[in-house]
Design a protein around this nucleic acid. Structure first.
Lengths: 341, 341
DNA sequence: CTGAAAGCGCTAACAT
DNA sequence: ATGTTAGCGCTTTCAG
């Protein structure tokens, strides 16, 4: 058998409760005995049994994260994993562990109910991709500590964190105008792609506030693929006057956009500026490297975890919240405005 | 307080051990009482306390996965997360949970020792990125059930699974030759990029076996970026005779390669064929879509988990193993061989 | 500041 | 086929 708290107690000549208090840093133990006990623990290579601690404490020091882990998800949505990595990082820093649990939208509520009822975690993190009315109801009714990653697409009382894509769009607009671009165009995803839609909304709003409104014929929406990005860019370049800058809703579109511009024999940023969102996966690999409004998703994960730990400690503080941490990474693709005619 | 096994026992008019046996599907319980107990559990909304079960059983039904979760890892290495998703999937199917724990190479051995000593998991999965001699020694000395994802870069007795990149290279070579390509070139990553190096080795071997050896001046290595992919392709196209097919070690290189071919005014696959590895993230988004030797990393995760569960059950069966599941996804980029002169 | 002792909820020998 | 019961290793009152 492994060495237990009893062995340590006997060896150190104290009671098990004293050892326990030393383990948990209880104030009432004198430094002298604490030191002796610690020494004994080291000498015996004692490590508290995690299951026994969870059981006795009635707390697991663990949070379960529910999300869609369907095939190819890591390639289609690396964002989500970067958030998860951020969550894990912040959790670990405070002594909590992260359990990853894949589910689909229909099973998520059941999985959550199970985790709550069985007390397999002290809190739940739910990715919007598996959020449902049933799950929302469960979380609010049980008052179980939770955090939803992304805003639920429906009315709900759950706690959530999200990225302010609209604000990111504003940042992009402001940057372009500041650099002297005036005839700005937008190449985006379909209207069900909320990040694209919100980014467009932000660009629109930002430009309007700077008295440089985005004209509707400068907006093209399509699939988020290289091919569609190129196709839409070709259309834009045919217009006259031609746009002097293009905002691409994501990296895929941006890549198609850049290649179409090159194919047309135009120079970036001399003839036309290009800006995109997310500094991944290849905004920095193109020629020239692209200016990007970066979304710090890792930070979003950190924040989500920190909020959650706060809720665990103060269960009444159920806050609904919204965070944003986009910031501009300026590169060559918007470095020089075209000279005005 | 929540409802416990005692409540169920009392309500169903049986002993707690009977309820326990029903929970665990013990054979000795008659179907009649089992049904009655199950009914009572449902009526009382009883769910066994997970911590208590872990504690009493002395098993957690959980495995800890140790890996590097540094910033931007999800973007730079989506592969790893796809494997993790595969691991989780297989684990969950057998009633096991996955705990994700980030660490760096120097801390990994400590984290592992901690998990083992505290019994916070029944097994350990370690990603090669954090593998060290110390960790290797720990795993072999403790005989703790484990599985390393990827082959350790040094001599070691640990269990590991990996992808057969060499075989993938052979597949690529065979496909190209079958399609009539003869002057085959390779565009790869630096020599420390093991997947690229192994793929090259496979291509070399495959071509040799088909009496169509890869000539050394047809091999270019560089950074795995669009820019370097394009640069190396330009060099290849300058050679005479020009290659009639190019094998790209990864998607980034392939994308640069494709754009360089287009820029040179050549047609794919008419003038030159292109094949790459991994069907992600954009081999299918290019024009034309690329033939790819796909590495089923999700499946690798599945296998790793299944092996591990086998080891948990039969701790003496410590097998070292190697798996491969690459298969060809044929698309337009290798559809038509250039006519021989 | 330290110790005694009562659980935490469940499992698994063992007895019947 | 079912019940009795002794733990599992730790935390946490409560006494002293």
């Amino acid at each position: 058998m492994a060495v237990t708290i009893k062995d340590v107690a006997r060896e150190a000549g104290v009671s098990v409760s004293t050892v326990s208090k030393v383990i948990n840093g209880h104030y009432s133990i004198s430094e002298a005995t604490a030191a002796r006990v610690r020494e004994t623990m080291r000498a015996l290579s004692y490590y508290p049994n995690a299951s026994a601690q969870s059981f006795a404490r009635g707390a697991t020091q663990r949070v379960v994260l529910l999300t869609d882990l369907e095939r190819n998800i890591a390639f289609s949505n690396p964002h989500m994993f970067e958030i998860i990595a951020g969550v894990e990082e912040a959790l670990r820093r405070r002594g909590y562990a992260l359990e990853l649990r894949g589910t689909d939208k229909t099973d998520a509520a059941g999985a959550a109910r199970d985790a709550i009822a069985r007390r397999s975690a002290d809190a739940l993190i739910v990715h919007v991709s598996v959020m449902s009315h049933a799950l929302s109801a469960l979380l609010t009714e049980t008052h179980f500590p939770h955090m939803v990653l992304g805003v639920p697409g429906f009315d709900s009382q759950v706690c959530w964190v999200d990225i302010n894509h609209v604000y990111s769009g504003v940042l992009a607009a402001e940057h372009l105008v500041k650099r002297g671009y005036r005839r700005i165009a937008f190449v985006g995803g379909r209207d069900y792609d909320l990040s694209s839609t919100n980014r467009l909304e932000g660009v629109r709003r930002g430009l309007k506030d700077l008295n440089c409104p985005l004209s509707e014929n400068m907006i093209w929406l399509g699939d988020s693929t290289l091919a569609d990005g190129a196709r839409m860019t070709v259309r834009l370049l045919e217009q006259s006057p031609r746009p002097d800058a293009i905002v691409c809703a994501n990296n895929y579109l941006a890549l198609g956009c850049v290649s179409a511009i090159h194919a047309a024999g135009l120079k970036i940023p001399g003839d036309i500026g290009v800006i995109t969102f997310d500094d991944n996966p290849f905004s920095h690999m193109t020629d020239p490297p692209l200016t990007a409004v970066d979304i710090d998703v890792r930070d979003m994960g950190n924040q989500a975890a920190d909020f959650l730990l706060g809720i665990i400690r103060h269960p009444n503080k159920q806050v609904q919240t919204y965070i944003t941490t986009s910031n501009l990474i300026e590169r060559e693709s918007t470095a020089r405005p075209r000279r005005r005619p």
